[in-house]
Structure formats: C-alpha cells, structure tokens
Computed example of a mutant assay.
Amino acid sequence: MDKIGETTLLIDLAALEHNYRFLKTKLAAQTKFLAVVKAFAYGNDMVVIAKKMQALGTDYFAVAYVKEGILLREAGITAPILILHPQPVNFSETIEHCLEPSLYSPKILHSFLKVAEEKNQTDYPVHIKFNTGLNRLGFLKNDIDFIADKLKNTKALKVASIFSHLAASEDLSEKAFSQKQIAGFNNISNKLKQKLGYSPFRHILNTSGILNYPEAQFEMVRSGIGLYGYGNDKIFEEQLKPVASLKTIISQIHEIAPNESVGYNRAFTSKNYRRTATLPLGHADGIGRQYGNKRGHVNINGKSAPIIGNVCMDMIMIDVTGIDCEEGDEVLIFGPNKSAEDFAASANTISYEILTAISPRVKRVVTNL
C-alpha cells in the first residue's frame, strides 16, 4: 500500500482468513463456528470483519449489545446473531431485526417472553446462558426446572443453544477448574435438554478453550481474540497473524538540551542532550496515559523508541536519540512485527484492551480484500 500520511489502523483480511482456517483445524468437521465481532470487532471494523467472515462461511456471529446487532443487519449480514448481553429496553428491536438474545436470568426470561408473546412470535430462537463459575452472567443449575417449565408453557420461544463461559481457559495452572466447569456444563445442558424434549446445540469454548480443551467443543465454539491474531499463549500466537496494525508518522523532531523537560507536568527531564519526536496520536486515540514515562515503546525503522513524558490527548513524544529518522517517517505502534500483546504488557494490561481502545477517529484502511 502507499505510505501512510496520518495515524492509521491497517486491517488485514488475509490474516483474518488465516486465523479462521487455523482455528477450524482444531475442530471436528460438524462443529459450528461463532465469530465474536463485538466492540467493533475488537477495535477493527465490525462490518468489514463480519462481511469477510460471512463470506468464509461462519455459522454464527455474537455481539454484546442489540445496537451492534442492528448495525450488522443494516450492513447486510444475514447469518444468525447472538446478543450476549441484551437489555429489556431493546427487546422489541431485537425481534424486529431478527436478533437472538442470551437469556441469563429469570427477569430477562420473563421480559423477553412477554415481548415475544405480544408480538405473536412462534419458536423465536433464544440462547440460555448458565453460570458455571465465571460469576458474571447466567442462570444457576437450580434454575433448570424453572426454565423448562416456563418454556414448555409457551409457543413463543424455542432454545437454539445452551451455553456458558470458561473463567480461565488460557491458564493451564487452572486446568482442574476449567475441567470442572466443562463437566458441570455438560451435566446442566443434558438435564435441560431432557426436560425440554429436544436438543439445542451447546457451546462453552472461547479461543483459549478451542486451543486447550478441544475435546469440549460440543456442537459449537466461539472465537473472538483468536480471529484477530492472539491466542493468549506464545505457542499459539506463533501460528496466528495479527489482523490490526497501528501506524503513525513523525510530526516534528526536537533537539533537547540537558535539564529541559518534555510534555505536561514536566514528567520527563533530560539529563543530557536527547532527540525527541512528536507523534499525532494520544489518549483520545486509545494510547492511554499508562503507556507514558518509558513504559510503552514504538518502532521506527526497525528500532525501538520509548514513549517519554505523559501521553497527551492528541500527541505522544518519544526518544529517538541514536535512531536514523526524520519528520514524516512511519512509526509502528503494534502489528505483525510488534505484538499488541507485548505493547499492552508494558503497561500491565492485555491485548484486548489496547485493540478495543483504538478510537473511531483513527483512519481505518482495509488490505487484502
């Protein structure tokens, strides 16, 4: 592609396809695949990613909120869309746009059933979520009879899937806990299937679950971070390709004398002569203040340069002393040659956070269409 002239997030669809096909090698041929595209497809472009995944043949999509599902429908996505965290205020829109809600509590089940019956629905697909140890959302095991009785007394709803979420699938030191969750989910789902009198498909594995517990894939798996090139483990990340690359340029270079300060609050003071560069991105673009004061590093012409001083709203300053560079040169924040996971780790956080934090004002460019 042409040289960038501003802060740009490059979205590589060839990398996305590679990651999808790699994850599919871990699955049985008949196992369904759900692509998680919430949070603007982990900070990329939700519509672009979903269209590519639909073309590749993914079976399902998942988003967090109804608003996200509506955006996909309006963009022409026709595959089933699971809403992971729906709210009652949006239930009418959920049905209007043929979105499939996760029902995770008695209140949510009551509320959605009421709306579905008012709209004269028959066998509207819903997904029953159970809490097996994450303690975030979900029914409990002792809710099985309540759920079955409620659903057997209505024609408005039909369970498309039963699912849960692993709490520590990426951490093999917690293997016993994960296996306990899987066994508990198997028991719960079998009991609910028996009481319903039919067999919804089941899913509990996320990306790390697919890679570490493929024996528990049931009838479907879900992948979010893996599709975008991160496997929560160096072994797997070597086989995945980052989809997003964040690049910017050098706006200005300064020669800093000893005892001169850089940035707000004089957070950096030079002990000797230094050369600094100012970049056009900051915490309003997703590079939080936690990356300042030499915690975060960027790459220029193959060299690593620390972020110095406090990150500003629209700018960061870096130390380029000893680096051959000039104004207008490209700067890599993260991408294939500098992992977002490594960049995030410098500030004691994770790839999910830096990826999803990239502001909508950052230009998106799609490559390898």
Rank of each mutant, 00 (worst) to 15 (best):
L211I: 08
G184R: 10
G133E: 04
G309A: 11
V320D: 04
F177A: 14
G231F: 08
R21T: 14
N368Q: 14
K24P: 01
D59T: 10
I49Y: 04
Q179A: 07
R202K: 08
E237H: 14
E96P: 00
A55I: 08
Q239S: 14
V37Y: 11
V159K: 03
K129M: 01
L279N: 10
D149F: 03
N299A: 09
P336S: 15
F334S: 09
D342Y: 10
E174F: 00
H203K: 07
V47P: 10
G229D: 15
V48C: 13
E330Y: 03
I307F: 04
G322R: 05
Q54W: 03
P86H: 12
H127L: 00
H254R: 09
V298F: 05
Q217F: 01
L240R: 10
Y264P: 05
N368K: 14
F61I: 07
F112D: 06
R202I: 03
H85S: 01
N206W: 01
A183W: 03
G226E: 10
K26I: 02
G224D: 11
N153I: 00
P86L: 03
R73D: 14
F130V: 05
I4C: 05
I323V: 13
P360G: 15
Q87P: 00
K338H: 13
I235P: 09
Y198E: 06
Q217D: 14
K32H: 11
S161M: 03
K38R: 04
A160V: 02
F130A: 01
N348G: 12
A41F: 06
F112R: 00
H297D: 09
G288H: 14
F146S: 01
L27A: 11
E330Q: 07
R266H: 14
I249F: 00
S169W: 02
N90K: 01
K152G: 06
A267N: 15
F146G: 01
Q252W: 03
E6A: 07
F61V: 07
I210V: 13
G322P: 00
A39W: 05
G263D: 13
T248A: 07
